[in-house]
Design a protein around this nucleic acid. Structure first.
Lengths: 198, 198
DNA sequence: CTTAATTTATGACTGAAATCATAAGGGTAA
DNA sequence: TTACCCTTATGATTTCAGTCATAAATTAAG
């Protein structure tokens, strides 16, 4: 996260997106650096059958879509506002200028990329070699530290639908539902009022 | 890649590893920044059944294992020399000092992490939602630009065994063999002398 | 040079997750 | 308030990749 004032000093402008609106599309060239002022964004892909894969969710204060900016490559995924969202946008040129004139910001970017790379490494190994229950549980545990799900007396409330968990782990809804049921039976997690707690 | 002289200025030392020797293990805390002088390194995970997943290969000039260094986290995977390898190693503290005193190096690190994140994004979507043939072909195409496989009159020679392709895409050897056979039948790639060309 | 291990290969069989079908509860938009 | 869609749910069926078995070709090791 880069300080709002610093971004504004380099000409950042805020832009609003309605729920479900597309921010950028897979295959397009990046033009801006984006940071979330409010709302939530997801990055995803669709295969030929229209099946979705969710690369990740991004919340207030987080940036997204930088890698292609640094590589002069096209976006490998779409970015979509999952609720009404306000973004701070700064053009690629201005962003690069900001970076070169403010070395301490680089470290923030590095930490951010490192964190996302870490998540991807963990999930890649999970998706490739583990059975559904393991994958679902690992995603849940990771999301507890990664997103900040609130904790109450029942534990952490996992604010993801079964469908979203499926799209994050490469599983079908029905499989996720059955996996969660089975994990509950084993006492690994709780289902209260259809919501998952851990 | 950071210039050898610069690394040495900050106390980097070279270290040799024999083929199959472990450089670091999953779950351990990072202590050094590593850059390859010669040889090849792979990062991998094993699931409970001993099934391997290869996170990636790293060659001369490349660094690996930085994310946990920046996050104060443990390694999410193992690093193993796939052939006799010589590394340039610099302690975490010295590396951080180098970074803060040489801002231009940060951009190199950022580009490196961005590239790896890009690869992971592409492969995650592939592994999650596409059938074997698609996954194998995508890995091959990505590896052509990512590694530098040499090109001759038959095309790019894919220097990966069927087993390695399987471990990179989360498929079993037999499935990879059949997928490659099928892709050859369709004329998508060539098999000459058991080697894959594209 | 011989032996052992790895790699590619193919066929038969199995099983786990995907698919299909259906339904009820909950939220929300008109 | 109603109608519609999303979410959770469950059972039956199918399918495709995994598994198992076996073998030849090639490479690496002793």
């Amino acid at each position: 996260m880069i300080a709002t004032e610093l971004l504004e000093k380099y000409g950042a402008l805020s832009k609003s997106f309605n729920k479900s609106e597309t921010i950028f599309e897979e295959g397009k060239s990046p033009t801006h650096y984006y940071q979330i002022l409010s709302g939530e964004v997801k990055m995803n892909n669709f295969n030929d059958d229209g099946r979705e894969f969710i690369q990740g969710f991004f919340n207030k204060g987080q940036s997204f879509g930088e890698p292609p900016l640094f590589l002069n490559r096209v976006y490998p995924a779409n970015a979509i506002a999952v609720e009404d969202t306000e973004l701070l946008c700064i053009s690629k040129d201005n962003f690069m200028k900001l970076l070169s004139e403010n070395p301490s910001v680089s470290l923030k970017i590095i930490e951010n990329l490192a964190q996302r790379l870490h998540y991807k490494s963990v999930m890649a190994a999970e998706i490739s070699t583990h059975e559904p229950e393991h994958r679902v549980l690992r995603l849940i545990d990771y999301s507890i530290t990664y997103f900040n799900f609130k904790e109450d007396k029942n534990g952490h409330r996992i604010d993801l639908t079964r469908q979203q968990i499926g799209d994050l782990t490469g599983l079908r809804v029905e499989t996720v539902i059955r996996a969660i049921k089975s994990l509950e039976k084993k006492g690994t997690l709780k289902i209260i009022n259809r919501k998952v707690y851990r």
